[in-house]
Structures are given as C-alpha cells and as structure tokens.
Design a binder for these strands. Structure first.
Lengths: 159, 159
DNA sequence: ATATTTTTGAGCAGAATGCTCAATACAGCG
DNA sequence: CGCTGTATTGAGCATTCTGCTCAAAAATAT
C-alpha cells in the first residue's frame, strides 16, 4: 500500500469538498486529464485507501436526536459473546475496543434520556459487562473529517 | 421533518448495502418505479435526513494507523478559542463537546505512539486545557453504521 | 363519493461512465 | 547521457444514468 502522493491528496480533497463531483469535473478543476483522475481513483479504491462512498444517514433524521458515549467494563476475557450481544442492540451505532479504564466504547443513539436509560440497562445485561459509564454528547463541534490531513498531504513533498 | 417511513428505510438500507447503487438499480431491487425512488431520495436529501454522500478516506491509508480518543478538560468557559486551537491540529479528525469528567472528546489519528505523544503535547498547549486523558483504540469492532436502526424502520408500521 | 397525494410508466436530451488505444512526457538507472 | 519502464494525456465509442416533464393509474384522505 503505497502512500498517497500530493496529486492523490488533491483529488481526495476536491472529492471531500464536493462528494458528488464527477470524474470529469474533478479533472477540470485540478487541471488533470480525465484518464489520470480515473486511474488514480481506481488505484486508491483497489488499495483500500478510498472507501466506498457512503451516503450517511443522520440518526437525528430517524428520530434519535440523542448521542452518547458509553464506556463499558467487562469481566475476564469473555470478549466475543459480549461484543455480539452489544452489537445486537440497534442503537449501538459504533463499537470500539479500547485501552484504559473501560474495555469497550459504544457510540449510542437514543430517542430521549428515558430511551437512553433503557439502552444502558440492555448493555448491562450483556454477558460479562460489569460496569458502564455514560457520557452525553452535547455538540458535535467537528464531525469526522480528514480534510486537514489531506491538506497537509496535498502540498508537494512533505510525505 | 417527517419521519422516514418503511419505504424510505428500505431505500436507505439498499443504499447502505450498496452505496454505489444507481437510482435505476435501487428501483429494480425494491420493485419500485424509478421516479418513486428518485422523488423519495430527493425529499430525504432536502429534508436533511440523508447527508451528502461522502467518500471516506481511511486515515490508515494516509499513514496514520494509530487511533486514539483523548478526553480533554478545560478550565473555565473559554470554549471557543480552545476548540479552534484544537481543530487546527490536523490529526484531530473529530471533536465533541461532552458531559462528564472531560469537557471535550477528540478523536485523533497518529503515525505511531511517539507521534501521539507529540499531538498530546500540542493539545495541552491549547488555551484553557488543563488535563487530558488518552485512550488507545485497539480495534474497531463496528465502524459507524445505522444499518440495524434502518432495519428496524424498514418493517412496516413500528415507527 | 370526491379530492388530494403518491406512484407509475414513458419519453427525451444531455452527460458521465468504463473502456481502449496511441502519442507524449517523465522518471529512474546503467 | 541515453535508454527504458511508467504515468499522463487526448481522443473516441457504446452503454448507461441523470434530471426532467407529462399524464394515467393507484392509493389515501376528507
């Protein structure tokens, strides 16, 4: 997996700014040939560096305005059954294994605080879960984005 | 913002399963007319329930294999300048305001542990930051996904 | 039952896609 | 310095998708 060079980064940046941009539009904007853009995008995708375009559904739109981060401590090493049980809860939209005080971190959406309480109880019922610690997300200052990273890579040299 | 009904959910599910699917393909797969799919997608987008398609760049591909969650405690209410300073660090790929022990949660990528240490120091230099707590992400068991939520909504009735 | 909304099927011009090919520019290397 | 392999470019072409409109049919509400 070779690193993206500055041209790749510029393509990705343009795509980040306008995800709907067509290959033709990207080529125009960047002053490259359509074939070049097409070839590089293909390579980036095949090497796994560019994931599939995801049309992200906002949980708020589905009726889940509440976002929480729940740190989960599990006893012993009953990893898998615990994770599976947790993943069966639809409101768990992301699950990470972490170091530190907790062992798992779940990103959870909920309809309201009462709903969140219900989900927390569900979590505690999963096998091996001994403790949970809930943090409410008050504001998403910056949703996930690698734009600034790409900007760094877009400058010639400076791997 | 009216809630998505089961047909919307089925469209979104199909799109989640195959983000590259064209409107025509979706219509075929779901047994709907192309116009219907097109109209509903348009409505979902205009109501903000369907975000722009984002082609996600994997930070690993850019050379940042390490992912960490850093809880940040800030003194007083110097919110904005602190947040701006933190957002100027390219390795901060997400930033949330939270309740609980910390005040901010930053999702940070790094080239290696030494790099992470450097970034942590950068964070501590931001105005108002008094303490930070770093958690390493060992495994992304389940990347962000609302699929199971959509599946629930895809069943007729059951708002 | 009547009115309103949604879905459907059809058509059409413009554009993008995926592909191939050959010429040119660029790179590293002996 | 010149050679050689690679990347870029421009062109072409068949197929497909898009965005749009329109009118009939179906479903839903009043």
């Amino acid at each position: 997996m070779r690193n993206v060079d500055s041209i790749d980064a510029r393509i990705l940046l343009a795509l980040d700014a306008d995800p709907r941009a067509t290959t033709v539009a990207l080529a125009d904007r960047l002053g490259l040939a359509r074939n070049t853009v097409q070839a590089r995008l293909k390579r980036l995708e095949e090497s796994g560096q560019l994931r599939e375009p995801s049309r992200r559904v906002a949980p708020e739109g589905l009726g889940y305005p509440l976002l929480a981060l729940i740190t989960i401590s599990i006893s012993q090493r009953v990893g898998h059954p615990t994770q599976e049980a947790i993943l069966r809860i639809p409101e768990v939209v992301e699950l990470l294994v972490t170091t530190g005080d907790g062992d798992l971190l779940a990103r959870v959406v909920a309809r309201d605080t009462e709903d969140l309480h219900r989900i927390t109880n569900l979590l505690l019922e999963a096998p091996g879960v001994v403790r949970s610690n809930t943090t409410i997300v008050l504001l998403e200052v910056q949703p996930f984005s690698v734009r600034s990273l790409l900007e760094r890579h877009a400058k010639p040299d400076l791997a």
